[in-house]
Amino acid sequence: MSTEKLVGRFVSEYSENMDAYLKETGCGTLVRKAVANTEMTINILNQGDQWSCFQEHTFKSPSVVFKLNEEFEQMTPERRMCKTMVTLTPEGKLVERQRKKEEYANDHTITRYLEDEDTLVVVYECGNVSAKRVFRRQKCMCTSDSINDKYI
Rank of each mutant, 00 (worst) to 15 (best):
E4C: 00
K5E: 12
K5V: 01
G8M: 00
R9V: 14
F10A: 03
V11G: 01
E13M: 06
Y14Q: 10
Y14H: 12
S15R: 04
M18L: 15
A20Y: 06
Y21S: 00
T29M: 12
V31N: 09
A34I: 08
T38Y: 07
M40C: 15
T41Y: 03
I42V: 12
N43A: 03
I44R: 00
N46R: 07
D49T: 10
Q50I: 05
Q50V: 09
C53G: 07
E56Q: 08
T58F: 14
F59Y: 11
N69P: 04
E70Q: 14
E70V: 13
E71L: 00
E73I: 05
T76F: 06
R79V: 08
T89Q: 10
P90S: 10
E91F: 12
K93Q: 14
L94W: 10
V95K: 14
E96W: 07
R97M: 05
R97P: 01
Q98I: 06
R99V: 13
E103T: 00
D107A: 08
H108I: 04
T111N: 13
R112C: 06
E117C: 05
E117P: 07
T119R: 04
T119N: 09
L120A: 04
V121Y: 05
V122N: 11
Y124T: 02
G127Y: 08
S130R: 10
A131H: 12
V134S: 11
F135S: 05
R136N: 13
R136P: 06
R136E: 10
Q138F: 00
K139C: 05
M141S: 13
T143L: 10
T143E: 15
D145E: 08
I147W: 03
I147H: 08
N148M: 04
